[in-house]
């Protein structure tokens, strides 16, 4: 039986998530794993937007901020269950993406990068300054999701780290599955067609602006859910989640792994999440190395690490 690339990616992901804990020397690695999954989820959204629809966003952390603070604020102020707050954050992000994207995506060129940059910084500014609501730069506690206690009552006793590792892992698998389905759907094909040539896509009757807008809204929801998961597992969140550097990190992860592929996105997220953990010894050099990695990858592995390697393997096999 030949596996389609879609099922191959999903199967590899499931196996990886299920088996990796066997090799964990300590509980700390569950936490690192969960962080990788959270980042990979947001980066999967970037793949849909940048890899398939060909648009850049430099403000996606703003949506992550909305998702995160929805989980921090809605349960406390309106008595909404944290799980519903995740959906609320996703809905707010989607509406905002639609409002910002609709006028911008009618324009040709890279205006979305600029508009999203402004939007993201405004969001992080509000989170920093509205101290009465968000408590400002010091951050705010996030209520417990409560699912771990439910599982414990059902007889499944997981440590906090284990629970978030598997929970985020499952959400990532779902997110990747949805993205890969989207890729093979009519919308996904249309998106990739317009990435190839906008003019050609328009000539055959595609509503190019609407397709790009759909991609932007979907990717905003991915970022929002990723922000929510980060807030819920840390039980604490600061406005840094919405900062410009976080937006840049997301794009860098996507581009590093290979912006056209979901597998690449997950690889990129893994590398750039692990890098600072490894570099804590050289904390001083973290920015230096991050910047250097970004430049070198863009020059020497333009399509990203995973597609470049795949091409090498296929090329030598022929």
């Amino acid at each position: 039986m030949r596996l389609t690339p879609k099922s191959a990616t999903l199967l590899a992901l499931v196996v990886l998530i299920a088996l990796a804990p066997v090799f964990f020397p300590s509980g700390f690695y569950y936490r690192v794993g969960a962080l990788i999954f959270v980042n990979a989820l947001a980066v999967t959204g970037i793949v849909i937007l940048t890899g398939w629809a060909g648009q850049i966003s430099l403000g996606h952390a703003g949506f992550a901020g909305i998702g995160a603070y929805a989980c921090a604020l809605a349960p406390v102020h309106w008595g909404i269950h944290p799980a519903l707050a995740v959906l609320l954050g996703a809905a707010v992000s989607a509406v905002l993406a639609w409002l910002v994207g609709r006028p911008i995506l009618r324009l040709k060129g890279y205006y979305l990068a600029v508009a999203s940059l402004g939007m993201g910084i405004l969001i992080s500014m509000v989170l920093n300054n509205e101290r009465e609501l968000t408590r400002g730069p010091d951050g705010i506690e996030v209520p417990e999701l409560g699912l771990r206690a439910v599982l414990k009552d059902a007889g499944l006793d997981l440590s906090n780290g284990q629970f978030w590792y598997f929970f985020c892992g499952i959400v990532l698998i779902l997110g990747a599955w949805l993205a890969l389905n989207l890729r093979d759907s009519a919308t996904g094909r249309a998106l990739r067609a317009l990435h190839g040539s906008e003019v050609a896509a328009r000539t055959v009757g595609m509503d190019v602006a609407k397709l790009k807008l759909q991609a932007f809204v979907i990717s905003a929801v991915y970022a929002s859910v990723s922000g929510s998961l980060l807030a819920l597992q840390n039980k604490f969140i600061t406005p840094d989640v919405a900062g410009f550097m976080h937006s840049v990190e997301m794009v860098t992860m996507a581009v590093l792994g290979g912006v056209g592929s979901v597998a690449g996105a997950i690889f990129g997220a893994a590398v750039l999440t692990l890098l600072p953990q490894v570099l804590t010894v050289f904390a001083e050099y973290e920015q230096l190395v991050l910047g250097l990695v970004m430049v070198l990858v863009m020059i020497f592995l333009r399509e990203g690490v995973v597609p470049s390697i795949l091409r090498k393997i296929r090329g030598s096999g022929e």
Binding site: A113, V251, T252, G291, L292, V293, M294, V295
Partner: peptide
């Protein structure tokens, strides 16, 4: 764009 952002971080 990413190259110039990378250069600025560097």
């Amino acid at each position: 764009v990413i190259i110039t952002i990378g250069a600025s971080i560097f």
